[in-house]
Design a protein around this nucleic acid. Structure first.
Length: 422
DNA sequence: TCTGGGGTCCTAGGACCC
DNA sequence: TCTGGGGTCCTAGGACCC
């Protein structure tokens, strides 16, 4: 059976989430900002039409936002994560062979659905997701993932497709690929796009026609796979069970710069607690840790950034062990006299928890530590993140990430339920 | 004043081994 | 003049994704 993929992609996902429980926002320009309300990370169509670019710093477009009464929101990850889950659960009812590719995208395998009209099926799927979750999606269908991505792009940008485009049923494929810029192909980033253009390759069609050896030499095996996929040869399979994580990070810009070691220790301790929670949720333990810090590259003044990787004395998932190591690391690379903007903690060498090699000279009670972490996680699940935390994470946290314009966590907090008034 | 966060895979080169 | 060969593992850096 030749493969058939559908890519379902939520339209302007974060912006659409904000609209679901706040209908006044429909039809209006709206943007969602990154942490610290820094950059634009999502835009409604109306905001795109105003020329607001992806990733633009908010302060640079403030006059424009005011002039057009653009609604501005901080990121609300609790809401987006929950809405994503609702969308994915809906899709799963249509097609159990599903790969959740990102917070707002899923690949579906439509093998076995060939006898249906796939465009109609995509439309049905789209209407159901909209009705059950309030989120608009687009559907692209083709025989490889890369082509399904392109089909999805066509569905999004061509109004008369009604949000569904089946490339398998498109007789003018070459002409269509000829209208797609090479930098819009999935897997072609800035660097490769620039290199290709230097050689006169500017469209997806031209890329598809390019010689294998040439591609292999300049873009490696990844590039060659991509070109094969454009030719309709499927090289990327549906990944239904995600591979175990290889690394976990928590890194964040501060709401206000840090210039004392004690504040830096608080931040690093807080980030370590967060990444330790993720680690336990994945049922993994870490063998090594990297801590890093950096000043603000956009600002005048002395710049400094550094990172240090430490091997943990014992493979662990305990917040206490991890904080101890992180503080040791940050003290080693911290230098006085700088205004720090950001720090981070990276865990690597991840192994399944419970399969770890015991340390012959380990003098701690591991069973006790495990029970302590279970209690810590249970309390924070029940009472909210950070309800119970290590003292080294600090109390005042003047450096904390800012979210000044966050909408309520409508779907994950009893106190934030939307209220319907007659 | 104000510029995000969290991942993956591949490749080249060096260290090291027999 | 001639100075082995093949393999693995690790790491840093590049490129890409959402």
């Amino acid at each position: 059976m030749p493969p058939i993929f559908a890519l379902v992609d939520c339209n302007n996902f974060y912006a659409s989430c904000e609209r679901v429980f706040n209908p006044i926002l429909r039809g209006k320009p709206l943007v969602v900002l990154s942490n610290n309300d820094g950059c634009v990370v999502a835009r409604s169509n109306e905001a795109k039409a105003l020329g607001i670019g992806m990733g633009v710093p908010e302060f640079q477009i403030r006059p424009l936002l005011r002039a057009h009464h653009v609604q501005v929101f901080s990121s609300n990850y609790a809401l987006y994560g929950d809405m994503s889950q609702r969308v994915m659960e809906t899709l799963e009812q249509f097609c159990p062979d599903l790969e959740v590719y990102s917070i707002d995208e899923a690949f579906l395998s439509l093998v076995g659905f060939e006898r249906r009209n796939l465009t109609d099926y995509g439309g049905q799927l789209r209407r159901t997701v909209k009705q059950w979750t309030g989120i608009p999606v687009s559907v692209g269908i083709a025989e490889t993932k890369t082509l399904a991505k392109l089909a999805n792009r066509v569905a999004k940008r061509t109004p008369d497709t009604n949000g569904v485009f089946d490339l398998l049923a498109c007789p003018e494929r070459d002409a269509l690929l000829g209208r797609i810029a090479v930098e819009d192909v999935w897997g072609i980033g800035q660097n490769h796009a620039h290199m290709l253009m230097q050689h006169g390759i500017t469209t997806a069609f031209q890329l598809r026609q390019t010689d294998d050896q040439w591609i292999r030499k300049r873009m490696g095996i990844v590039g060659l796979r991509l070109v094969m996929e454009l030719r309709g040869v499927s090289c990327l399979d549906l990944e239904q069970c995600p591979a175990p994580k290889q690394s976990l990070t928590c890194s964040r810009a501060f709401g206000r710069h840090i210039s004392t070691l004690s504040a830096m220790e608080e931040a690093v301790s807080t980030y370590t607690s967060r990444v330790a929670e993720k680690l336990r949720r994945e049922r993994l333990a870490a063998t090594a840790m990297t801590v890093c810090l950096t000043t603000n590259e956009f600002k005048e003044g002395p710049q400094y950034s550094n990172a240090l990787t430490l091997t943990l004395p014992i493979v662990t998932d305990s917040t206490a062990d991890l904080i101890r190591c992180a503080l040791q690391g940050i003290r080693a690379i911290y230098r006085d006299g700088y205004r720090y903007k950001k720090a981070g903690v990276l865990l690597t060498g991840l192994v399944p928890a419970g399969q770890t090699q015991a340390d012959l000279f380990d003098d701690q009670d591991r069973g006790k530590s495990k029970r302590l972490m279970a209690a810590l996680d249970a309390v924070n699940d029940r009472w909210g993140a950070g309800a119970l935390r290590y003292a080294s994470s600090g109390i005042n946290k003047t450096w904390q990430t800012q979210f000044h314009r966050r909408s309520p966590a409508y779907t994950t907090d009893w106190n934030a339920l939307p209220v319907v008034t007659a």
